[in-house]
Nucleic acid binder design. Structure first.
Length: 270
DNA sequence: AAGAGACCCTGGATGC
DNA sequence: TGCATCCAGGGTCTCT
């Protein structure tokens, strides 16, 4: 569930607490949480390293270490990160724990176990195939229009393709398309310049608004301090099947595109 | 290149 | 109450 705004919220919340701290050790009870290298090597390479930075790329959290390695974490559907005092009672769903200097622990809690931890000195091994950051200055209206022209794909699945644009997931794709008044079933290269501009604005405004709201809490997502985001109260279409569209009073429909639920308003999204 | 479907997981909702 | 089945989307992978 965490998409770009949720991951950004987590990064902002953790950065001040983690940068400058040392990772003393790691423990893990679900080996598949560790993507690469294998657990023993990762443990060897991470022990006693200092966290020098924390940033986000798409839906990935990227910790820079003073060894030159990058610790990269993807929360996937149900991952949560939290900092707790050392020795706090363990939840059944905490599978990876980083022991920190200052007698605290960074815990990776993940009910569905889809999350992943990577350690590498070459970030591109993990992040290399990602598309542009939608909130970066490089993601201009012109660039999006050119990207759309180059492809012949159904719009909604294209927007959640991380190689096309990084960070948009199922919820914010639908929200962005509704804001732009564009039908999710449209083919990418059928959009004219004006429609492409509306989509560009829709994506950026939707993501910015979601970050301002601290992300959306749906079932598992929590901020690292345990509080819920607020964005779920502002959804225009997501999860609102058969309810009236706020803009035109039409009925919100749910269809499947690219194997995922897609919510939209057939009367004002063209 | 694009798209469909299986798979990775589990809790919660729904159906009988 | 209990059990089976479906669904949720973050991805990856294979096949057509």
């Amino acid at each position: 569930m965490p998409e770009l705004p949720e991951v950004e919220t987590v990064v902002r919340s953790l950065r001040g607490q983690l940068v400058g701290r040392q990772i003393l050790d790691i423990s893990n009870s679900w080996r598949r949480h560790i993507a690469f290298p294998d657990y023993e090597q990762l443990r060897e390479r991470i022990r006693n390293k200092t966290i020098t930075g924390l940033s986000r790329r798409g839906k990935y959290l990227v910790f820079s270490l003073d060894s030159g390695d990058f610790l990269i974490i993807h929360l996937k559907m149900t991952g949560q990160l939290k900092i707790v005092p050392e020795g706090t009672e363990m939840s059944d769903y905490t599978h990876t724990v980083f022991l920190l200097s200052g007698e605290e622990e960074l815990r990776f809690h993940d009910v569905r176990k889809f999350g992943k931890v990577y350690l590498t000195d070459d970030e591109s091994l993990v992040l290399g195939k990602l598309g542009p950051e939608p909130l970066s200055p490089a993601f201009t209206r012109k660039r999006l229009f050119e990207m759309l022209k180059d492809r012949h794909r159904i719009l909604k699945p294209l927007l959640i393709d991380q190689g096309f644009i990084a960070g948009i997931g199922n919820i914010y794709a639908d929200e962005s398309l509704h804001r732009a008044r564009i039908d999710p079933r449209r083919i990418s290269n059928s959009l004219n310049e004006q429609e492409s501009r509306l989509l560009h604005d829709g994506i950026r405004r939707t993501l910015r608004e979601a970050i301002e709201n601290g992300g959306a809490t749906i079932s598992d997502y929590r901020r690292p301090d345990g509080t819920e985001g607020e964005m779920q109260h502002s959804f225009r279409v997501y999860g609102r099947e058969e309810e009236p569209c706020y803009r035109c009073k039409g009925k919100i429909k749910r269809i499947i595109l690219g194997g995922r639920s897609t919510y939209f308003c057939p009367s004002c999204q063209m």
